[in-house]
Simulated assay, not measured.
Amino acid sequence: MRKYVIAAMTLAACWASAGAATNLLNVSYDPTRELYQQINPLFEAAWKARTGQELDIKQSHGGSGAQARSVLDGNQADVVTLALANDIDQLADRGLVAANWQKRLPLNSTPYYSTIVFLVRHGNPKGIHDWSDVVKPGVGVITPNPKTGGAPRWTYLAAWGYASKTYGQAKARDFVRRLYKNVLVLDSGARGSATTFIQRGQGDVLLTWENEALLAVKQAPPGAYEIVYPSVSILAEPSVAWVDRNVAAHGTAAPAQAYLRFLCTPAAQEVIARNFYRPRNAAVLRKYGRQFHDIKLFTIDKNFGGWRRVQAAHFVDGGVYDQIVAENNR
């Protein structure tokens, strides 16, 4: 125990040496690069005005599941801003994050939300309008790997929920199997799949975050892509937490906690909305509401029994997703 305390004190001293800015590492999921590049300077300035302390916030991005595993393997994240509550639950199960992490911040530690939509090419040549269209033979689907990313797990569950509602629970598994039979490339995260679809020109439809689809339309030549909202999708709630074990070692608990609370302020909520994530602040949502399409959303808790149940049934090694992949590869 004494060795651990000495090591932690030494690491904290290196992390915030005298006269230097305090480093804060945000380990996040794929599409949030631009979001935090804009939020970080705002918080750094606010923190300096409040405390006089210089902060230097670093970012790390990748598939949400892969990012969670990197923290489990020793990535020195002060905060995690991941696509799934389940990814943070895994850190809590290993003692890196407090078990009650969701209750420590406003809005159940979900400062914004999103959903899953379809991005298609000009004119929508394959006539893709709903989930039933993406399982048709000859439709090339691009979506990331549910074993490594957050968006693909939301996508998988959105498809499962649609199939259960439309055809009945007994037929949902085969519907999802047919969807993944059409997947041409399984990238590790949402941004990689966007690159495959947009820059490499593969596939007829990209199943992705709403914010990624809106960003793609904004950045592309006019009319190059169209967003298709299916009849129903899922309420996707990315979650945030500070990593208790690491902030204790680094001496960064105060700025890490303040940083995550800052995400719920009107200033940060404006940045969130401008980056096409749906803000929690009602006034900001009204201001930017025109860019978000009304869509029926079901939830992970009500429709699937929560993330722990979903993880154990679908995404563990040998779970339903692995079984589907094995069947498609026969």
Rank of each mutant, 00 (worst) to 15 (best):
V271I: 13
V97W: 02
T195F: 15
E226M: 00
K296N: 04
L82I: 14
N40T: 08
E54M: 08
H129V: 11
I116F: 12
Y321L: 09
D244G: 03
K48V: 05
D322H: 05
S239I: 08
A45N: 05
H250D: 05
W154M: 07
Q67T: 04
N275V: 12
R50W: 10
V271P: 01
N246W: 10
K218D: 02
G63Q: 07
A254Q: 15
A77W: 11
A66Y: 13
Y167R: 14
R191Q: 09
I300Q: 05
R280N: 14
E327R: 15
K218P: 01
I295S: 01
V228E: 10
A282V: 12
R261I: 03
Q202P: 14
I227H: 07
G189C: 03
E237W: 08
Q90W: 11
K136S: 07
T195W: 15
A249L: 05
G95Y: 07
A151Q: 08
S231G: 09
V80D: 07
H61Y: 14
W15R: 10
R153T: 02
V325E: 07
I116A: 14
R290D: 09
A283I: 12
V284G: 10
I300W: 06
A13Q: 12
A273G: 10
K296Y: 12
Y4A: 06
K171V: 04
K302W: 05
A258M: 06
Y277Q: 10
G251M: 02
S109C: 00
R286T: 03
E54A: 14
P266D: 07
K165G: 02
W242V: 00
P279R: 07
D294Q: 14
G123D: 13
F298Y: 13
L297Q: 07
N23D: 08
M1V: 04
Q219L: 06
S233Q: 02
Y277F: 15
C264N: 10
Q38Y: 12
G149Q: 11
F276D: 08
T166E: 08
Q38K: 11
G150L: 10
Y156A: 00
V134D: 02
A194V: 07
A258I: 06
S60N: 03
P279Y: 15
